[in-house]
Design a protein around this nucleic acid. Structure first.
Length: 326
DNA sequence: GCGACAG
DNA sequence: ATCTTGTCGC
C-alpha cells in the first residue's frame, strides 16, 4: 500500500506541464486590482491567508495541507483548516505547483463553503509566483532562490544579500531577459537570509513585497508560518497514535472540519508596544520562533509554491486533457 | 558514479 | 520537504 508519488514524470508529462504553465502565465494579472493595494497603509485589508503542505516522514504520498486566515494588521489566526491528503504527483523542481496546488485549491473551496465570510483578500503561498490563475490575489514567498533564467545563488548574489541593511530592504531578481522576476527581501532587521518574493496574481510586485514585509513577525510571514506550524502539528498528533487502526486519522477528532476561531487576544489584548501574540497559545507551542531581534538560525521554515492555479490535476498524464478556462 | 534543484 | 543534537540568546 503505497501510492508512490515519487517516480519521475515522463518527458511527455513534463511537456504538458510546461504547456500548462505557459497557458496560465498568459492569464496572470501582475498588477494591483484591489482598492486596498493602492494605499501604502492597505486600508480595507482585513484578512490575509497562508497555505502550506507538510509531509509525513516515512510516507512519500501522505501529507497535511493547511490553510489559515489571519486578521490584518493584527496577524491573529481567525480560521484554520488542516487535513490529510494523498499526494499524486512527484516533486519536480520548477513544477511544484502540480504537486501541491490541487490541495490548496481544495482548501479554498472548503473555506468558501463553510465560512465564506472569512475568505482572505490575498493569499501568501510558499514558493515562487508567476502563475496562479484563480480569483484570489496571491503572492509567492520562497525561502531559497529558484535558479532559473540565469538566476544563480552565486557569490554576486550573496554580496547583494550582505548589502541589505534593514528589514524591508530589497534588490531585484533580474532574469536573463532583463525581466524582473521577483525581489529578494530582508524580512526584518536581523534576518540573514532574504525571502524571495514574486507576483502571484492580481497584485504588483511592489505591493507584494510591502505586504509580505508587513506580515513578518519573524523571517517567514505569519500566514505561511502559521500554516506550516499547524500542518506539522497535525501530523505530529496523527503520528502520535499509530497504535490504533489504520495509519491515521480515522479518529473523529477535530480534523476534517474547518474551524473558525474567534480568538484574538480575548482577555489579553495586545499589550502596548508588543505585537499581539497569537491565539493565546503560541510561543510555548511554537518550536522555531527566533525573536525578531536575533537568532535567525532556524534552518528554514516553510514555503511552498505559487504556481499553476489550475483546476484539474495533470497527473497521471491524462491524454492531453483540455483545460477549460475558469 | 556525483551534484544541482522552489517544496 | 524530512532526517538530525546541541547551542546560543532573549
Amino acid at each position: 500500500m503505497a501510492l508512490e508519488a515519487a517516480e519521475r514524470p515522463s518527458e511527455e508529462t513534463l511537456l504538458l506541464w510546461e504547456r500548462e504553465q505557459a497557458r496560465l502565465k498568459t492569464r496572470v494579472v501582475p498588477r494591483d486590482t484591489e482598492a486596498w493595494q493602492r494605499d501604502p497603509a492597505f486600508p480595507g485589508l482585513r484578512r490575509v491567508g497562508g497555505v502550506d503542505v507538510s509531509f509525513v516522514p516515512g510516507d512519500s504520498s501522505r501529507a497535511c495541507a493547511s490553510l489559515v486566515v489571519l486578521s490584518y494588521p493584527e496577524l491573529q489566526v481567525v480560521y484554520e483548516d488542516s487535513h490529510m491528503v494523498r499526494l499524486k504527483a512527484p516533486y519536480v523542481s520548477g513544477f511544484l505547483a502540480f504537486r501541491e496546488v490541487p490541495f490548496l485549491v481544495e482548501l479554498v473551496q472548503r473555506l468558501q463553503e463553510k465560512e465564506p465570510g472569512l475568505m482572505p483578500q490575498v493569499l501568501l503561498v510558499d514558493g515562487n509566483g508567476v502563475l496562479h490563475q484563480r480569483d484570489l490575489p496571491c503572492v509567492g514567498v520562497a525561502k531559497k532562490l529558484l535558479q532559473v533564467d540565469g538566476l544563480e545563488n552565486n557569490s554576486l548574489h550573496k554580496e547583494k544579500i550582505v548589502l541589505l541593511q534593514s528589514g524591508g530592504d530589497t534588490f531585484p531578481l533580474m532574469g536573463n531577459s532583463g525581466t524582473v522576476l521577483g525581489m529578494a527581501l530582508k524580512s526584518h532587521d536581523h534576518s540573514t537570509k532574504p525571502l524571495y518574493v514574486s507576483v502571484g496574481h492580481r497584485i504588483s510586485l511592489e505591493v507584494a513585497v510591502r505586504l509580505t514585509h508587513h506580515c513578518c513577525r519573524f523571517r517567514i510571514p505569519e500566514p505561511i508560518r502559521q500554516a506550516d506550524i499547524r500542518s506539522r502539528e497535525y501530523i505530529r498528533r496523527t503520528l502520535g497514535n499509530p497504535g490504533s487502526p489504520a495509519q491515521g486519522q480515522e479518529r473523529h477528532q477535530k480534523e476534517q472540519r474547518p474551524k473558525a476561531c474567534p480568538k484574538g487576544g480575548s482577555g489579553a489584548p495586545a499589550g502596548p508596544g508588543r505585537p499581539p501574540e497569537d491565539c493565546g497559545r503560541d510561543s510555548s507551542t511554537d518550536l522555531k520562533d527566533p525573536q525578531p531581534g536575533f537568532q535567525e538560525q532556524q534552518k528554514d521554515q516553510q514555503s511552498e509554491g505559487t504556481g499553476p492555479h489550475k483546476d484539474s490535476d495533470l497527473w497521471p498524464p491524462p491524454a492531453a486533457r483540455v483545460q477549460s478556462p475558469p
